[in-house]
Write a protein that binds this DNA or RNA. Structure first.
Length: 502
RNA sequence: GAUUUCGUAGCUCAGGUGGUAGAGCAUUUGACUUUUAAUCAAAGGGUCGUGGGUUCGAGUCCCACCGAAAUCACCA
């Protein structure tokens, strides 16, 4: 930004910075030794133990200042929370209070002093000295908070504009404490997933995000170009096919938590890049993995929320085991009245029409079923529900059902009407897999640009031989949304994609 | 991509039927050595998203564009 765009407050801060530096003070020093956090101090303080806190050093950003002549109160914020400081002219080194007068909301300071309780009862730090650690040159949106007797927080003038919060997340994180908690929970969820898997002995791996052939899901990819090889590459849309190669390679449990990229629309459930967790375990099937993911999700809820209940909108969702298990065609029957198992294309299209569901010309069998399911069944799946046994046409990478003709051993986990996880007994018969991928390729040739291509190297791996394997994919962002109660994927992504300004 | 709504001071917002802008917080100056949305007194700060048009005159009406949100479409 050009110099002449600075507003009065920014110009004033520059003048203050000048005064500070003319007083021989470095406005951007190199380090500060703190010995306690705001949260720890508040937790440790009692009127009996306050002598233990007679020499504390804290650092943080000034969030409010109340000046009263020769003494002031201010609040600083560190990573753990806010704490009040009491700054009195007589108790600072000679001349230091004049420097304090040059500080602003947003400046970062280090302080030393002793903990005490004010007349009104608030645990605070009485400053003996302070040091400026960073001068802030732009005004911060200041939300004022009032806490009533019941501990309820009331926020005035909140920094609430969604666009600004997403674009300037660093400001959002400073000003809005709730969003900091959301991202802490996100980290905690991912950490606990890793812990759980690692404890079982499964190995975390990293597979390519840049791929010559994309696959493992139905979605349009991002295309990029590698200059040295002069070839186009695709950003991965799924982790699946590389992780299965590793099972072929002899690892018996592998998982990856990483970014997928899909060149599709954006809404409150979709961001072009999103975080997927996929896990593959040899010698297991989809029944086993259903129990595993149920245990994992139930455990995550307890770890993160200390409860197996979550409230979303008006629904209370119980994450206590066991989750409901329903066969897909039983759900069709329940919510449409039609027994559709084994029906032909003509029959399901007819039913879709009777149900008032629009079917695009050229839609595949799988597509029609999926439309009906999405329209009539999904909205009813509020409590966690494993939907099992999908028709083979919808699942080109899943193994045929051991007893149901035309179905595969697959489940999807739904909660609050949306899909959370997807898993199969993995298809490991290379002949069947080739047929299914070639069928996909035909769909693609007929204009379905989301159908998969044939990945010859993946088929080669299956021909070398993959043991019976269970696999699962789970969208981490949606899981975090569920467990934090956020309604938009953008509220669980630190930096959601935004159209550039101008 | 479609529809609807929105875009006014650093932040949150108000601006019937068109007459070039207001409030609170923030900022500045003064008072105040235990305040907490600190208080009291005074002051400064906006080419009203951008560009056109209608009009004597537009933040206000019309059109286009830019950006956002919600809903829908797309995304098994």
């Amino acid at each position: 930004m050009a110099e002449n765009t600075k507003n009065d407050q920014e110009l004033r801060r520059l003048e203050e910075l000048d005064l500070i530096e003319k007083a021989g003070i470095c406005a951007y020093p190199y380090s500060f030794d703190k010995n306690i956090s705001a949260k720890e101090l508040l937790a440790r303080f009692t009127d009996e133990t306050k002598d233990d806190l007679a020499d504390v050093k804290l650092a943080g950003r000034i969030m409010s200042i109340r000046r009263m002549g020769k003494a002031s109160f201010c609040n600083i914020l560190d990573e753990t929370g806010r704490i009040q400081l009491y700054v009195r002219k007589d108790d600072l080194p000679e001349g230091k209070y004049d420097i304090f007068k040059l500080l602003d909301i947003g400046d970062i300071i280090g302080i030393e002093g002793y903990a005490f309780r004010t007349k009104t009862g608030e645990i605070s730090v009485h400053c003996r000295d302070f040091v400026l650690l960073c001068k802030s040159l732009k005004p911060l949106p200041i939300a004022k908070e009032e806490v009533d007797e019941n501990g309820n927080k009331k926020v005035y003038d909140a920094f609430a504009d969604k666009e600004l919060r997403y674009r300037k997340r660093y400001i959002d994180l400073i000003v809005n404490s709730d969003i900091r908690d959301t991202f802490r929970k996100r980290a905690e969820i991912i950490r606990n997933i890793r812990n759980y898997f690692d404890t079982q002995g499964w190995m975390e791996v990293e597979t390519p995000t840049l791929q010559p052939q994309y696959g493992g899901a139905s979605a349009r990819p991002f295309i990029t170009h590698h200059n040295a090889l002069d070839i186009d590459l695709y950003m991965r849309i799924a982790l699946e096919l590389y992780l299965k190669r590793l099972i072929v390679g002899g690892f018996e449990g592998v998982y990856e938590i990483g970014r997928n990229f899909r060149n599709e629309g954006m809404d409150r459930n979709h961001n072009p890049e999103f975080t997927m967790m996929e896990i593959y375990v040899a010698y297991k099937d989809y029944n086993w993995i259903m129990n595993m993911i149920e245990e994992l999700i139930s455990m995550l809820a307890m770890k993160v929320n200390n409860s197996d209940k979550i409230v979303i909108d008006d629904n209370t969702i119980s994450l206590a085991r066991p989750f409901k298990r329903e066969k897909m065609f039983d759900l069709f029957k329940k919510y449409t009245g039609y027994d559709m198992q084994g029906m032909s294309m003509e029959e399901v299209v007819k039913i879709a029409k009777e149900l008032g569901i629009q079917i695009e010309p050229g839609a595949s069998y799988a597509k029609v079923l999926d439309e009906i399911f999405g329209e009539k069944v999904e909205p009813n799946l509020i409590q966690p529900t494993f939907v099992t046994d999908y028709p083979v046409e919808m699942s080109p990478l899943a193994k045929m059902h051991r007893s149901e003709k035309g179905l595969v051993e697959r489940f999807e986990l739904f909660m609050n009407g949306s899909e959370i996880a997807n898993a199969f007994s993995e298809l490991n018969d290379p002949r069947d897999q080739r047929n299914r991928l070639e069928e996909q390729a035909r769909c693609r040739a007929n204009g379905d640009d989301e159908a998969m291509g044939v990945d010859e190297d993946f088929l080669n791996a299956l021909e070398i031989g993959m043991p019976p394997t269970a696999g699962l994919g789970m969208g981490i962002d949606r899981l975090v949304m569920m467990l934090t109660g956020e309604k938009s994927i953008r509220d669980v992504l630190l930096f959601p994609l935004m159209r550039p300004e101008k």
